[in-house]
Design a protein around this nucleic acid. Structure first.
Lengths: 191, 191
DNA sequence: AGGGAAAGGTTGCATAGGCAACACATTGTA
DNA sequence: TACAATGTGTTGCCTATGCAACCTTTCCCT
């Protein structure tokens, strides 16, 4: 395997990611071939396989990168799961989903499922890391913390996703007003 | 020497050019080192020398690239040296000079001289190529055509450069109104 | 069903680029 | 002046990428 810190490797991987994101804006995921990606990235097809097993692995990484680009600094650095952090997580998740469905042609079920799973996972990890940073009220039980993070992430994601089909979907304050109390009460942080 | 059509070479050279242009916006030419360029381009310093002899060669290429980016298509494709083409050459040259002096810190005499010479040369080549494409009224004498192109290019460049110090320098129509008749009359194309 | 085109992967070899070390030149400074 | 620091330019060795060739798998057309 290649050395992930070699500048050539960093550049090549970035080229591939950028090319893939550009392609997603004009083609469906299923219709994109490795050849397409290699051409768009101006790299050799064989080189692609030195970095990614297949386009699914690439999608995974791109999804993760996009998540990191969208997460507000205050959330990433948060020491505690406050109202404000909760709101930002809800809004960001909603925005992420909206962007993804608007920019990419979600004509592929396999892609939609992969992206959904990935975002949920990233969300859960983010929440868990916040729980762990602040000496949390949830107690020291690592298992319990993980489950609470999983539930919270899933709840936020599920609501944000559902909101796509709501009539007032532009009114994100409506979404926040419903989700925040639910999550905070569930965590025993209710006001 | 490296193969100029290898995709790696094309990418590397582009990285170097882009890095150099970025550096020129925040440092004087004399203050820019090869190390700076290599760092900005995320390439190795030794790699720089595989592509350019020194930063002067790079400046030459970047100047030429910028010229090609600015030249209007109608001028590049022109079959004849018409009034309109003449006007566009004047305006473009003026714009090029203005941009260069605005964007780059022209604190280096060596740089200013190199850039000036290069633009003049590009201008003369462009004009000569137009003369050669249209069965010109200048006759078949290649030598004569070259001199006419050199004079025309120098005249346009000189005027555009002088215009930097004119009070109404924003009024480029004033520049055009002076240069166009001069050049066209000189070429025996007067109206 | 069958057969050809296109995509997915893999491999060996040639070349470009990364890295570290070196000698030399230039500059700044005590 | 001297000497330390920084920049220039080069070299040898190693790794990543390009390229062409190859086989396999998938798809699609009749």
């Amino acid at each position: 395997m290649v050395n992930q810190e070699d500048p050539r490797v960093l550049r090549t991987r970035q080229l591939i990611r950028t090319a893939f994101r550009a392609l997603l804006r004009r083609k469906g995921f299923d219709a994109i071939t490795i050849k397409d990606i290699a051409q768009e990235a101006t790299i050799n097809r064989a080189t692609f396989y030195a970095h990614f097993e297949d386009k699914y692995a690439l999608l995974d990484e791109v999804t993760e990168q996009a998540f990191h680009e969208m997460i507000p600094e205050r959330v990433a650095d948060a020491q505690e799961f406050t109202d404000e952090i909760c709101d930002q997580l809800i809004l960001m998740t909603h925005q992420y989903i909206v962007d993804f469905y608007r920019i990419c042609r979600m004509d592929s079920n396999s892609m939609a499922k992969l992206v959904d799973e990935k975002i949920k996972k990233m969300l859960q990890q983010t929440i868990e890391s916040i729980f762990l940073k602040g000496g949390t009220h949830l107690g020291p039980d690592r298992h319990r913390i993980k489950i609470m993070a999983a539930m919270t992430g899933s709840a936020i994601y599920g609501a944000a996703h559902y909101w796509l089909n709501v009539e007032e979907k532009d009114r994100t304050d409506g979404l926040v007003d419903i989700v925040r109390p639910y999550v905070l009460n569930g965590l025993g942080l209710g006001v």
